[in-house]
């Protein structure tokens, strides 16, 4: 009986969370589309989410591009195929690693920050204060962050693409003695626009997920400092899992058609 009760409790909690998240997403979409739209706050969030994430994303993608080049070179060497390093680095970075690793890094940085900020506002009654001052918290707090993250992530993914490919180029030319001009030419020849745009579409979805999970967990945090800590952890974990799940679904959708 206890076992059944545990399963029942788990599923009830799961459906409650799912329903509440769905309503939250719906309210956020409505807030994003209906005026007033707080352009100044969106601008501030673009700086905080996008600009300040650049170093993290750039370093991640540079080292990932370099490591990928080494793996492909030594893996491909057995079949005498080191020449495909440039094309596979470009493809791997633009289609998968740029947006996904960039998304995960931004999830760790931004989702946590958003959840902590909004969670603190919740437990210190600042969100209630917003409501009593005739300001909709979804419009003032949630929508600007979601819009900013959805705009910023494709730009960050593009930066990750360029720097990741550059990381592969540096390793290829400096460690393995590839000809720089040929490396660049092979990258350009092999890469199609669809490879890049598919990654950017994914990145936009990841940006939405990152901000919405940060806002959602912060908005419903309770129980003081411990509650805010829990919200921060939940935001990063849930955003990361949803990014990987969404990546799988979108890859299946975009590349099986």
């Amino acid at each position: 009986m206890t076992f059944l009760a545990t399963i029942g409790t788990f599923f009830l909690a799961f459906f409650e969370q799912s329903g509440r998240l769905s309503v939250f997403v719906g309210q956020t979409l409505a807030a994003m589309l209906r005026p007033p739209i707080y352009f100044r706050i969106i601008g501030q969030q673009i700086i905080r989410i996008g600009y300040f994430s650049l170093p993290v994303v750039a370093l991640t993608s540079f080292f990932t591009g370099g490591a990928l080049a080494i793996q492909i070179y030594y893996g491909g060497n057995q079949f005498n195929s080191e020449a495909i390093v440039s094309s596979i680095v470009a493809l791997g970075i633009t289609r998968e690693l740029g947006p996904v690793l960039g998304g995960l890094m931004v999830a760790g940085r931004v989702s946590a920050a958003i959840a902590a900020e909004i969670g603190t506002m919740r437990v210190t009654e600042q969100i209630d204060a917003l409501t009593t001052l005739s300001t909709n918290p979804h419009k003032y707090l949630v929508a600007p962050r979601v819009i900013a993250a959805t705009i910023c992530m494709p730009v960050l993914a593009l930066v990750a693409d360029i720097i990741g490919i550059f990381g592969g180029f540096v390793v290829g030319t400096q460690s393995f003695g590839f000809n720089a001009a040929i490396y660049v030419q092979r990258t350009i020849n092999f890469l199609s626009v669809d490879d890049v745009t598919s990654g950017l579409i994914k990145a936009a979805v990841f940006g939405f997920i990152i901000a919405i999970m940060g806002c959602y967990n912060g908005y419903y945090s309770k129980g003081g400092a411990q509650g805010v800590g829990r919200a921060t952890t939940n935001a990063v974990v849930s955003a990361s899992i949803l990014i990987l799940a969404a990546n799988y679904l979108m890859t299946a959708l975009l590349f099986s058609a």
């Binding site: 009654e125 600042q126 209630d128 204060a129 001052l133 005739s134 300001t135």
Partner: peptide
């Protein structure tokens, strides 16, 4: 037509005092 003083003030940390005080007038 309603004003509210919260137990701990609930001032917005991200805004200076004057923007807190005039929040409703600025936003609405």
């Amino acid at each position: 037509q309603v004003g509210m003083l919260f137990q701990n003030g609930a001032l917005f940390d991200s805004l200076p005092v004057w923007k807190n005080v005039a929040f409703r007038a600025i936003q609405n």
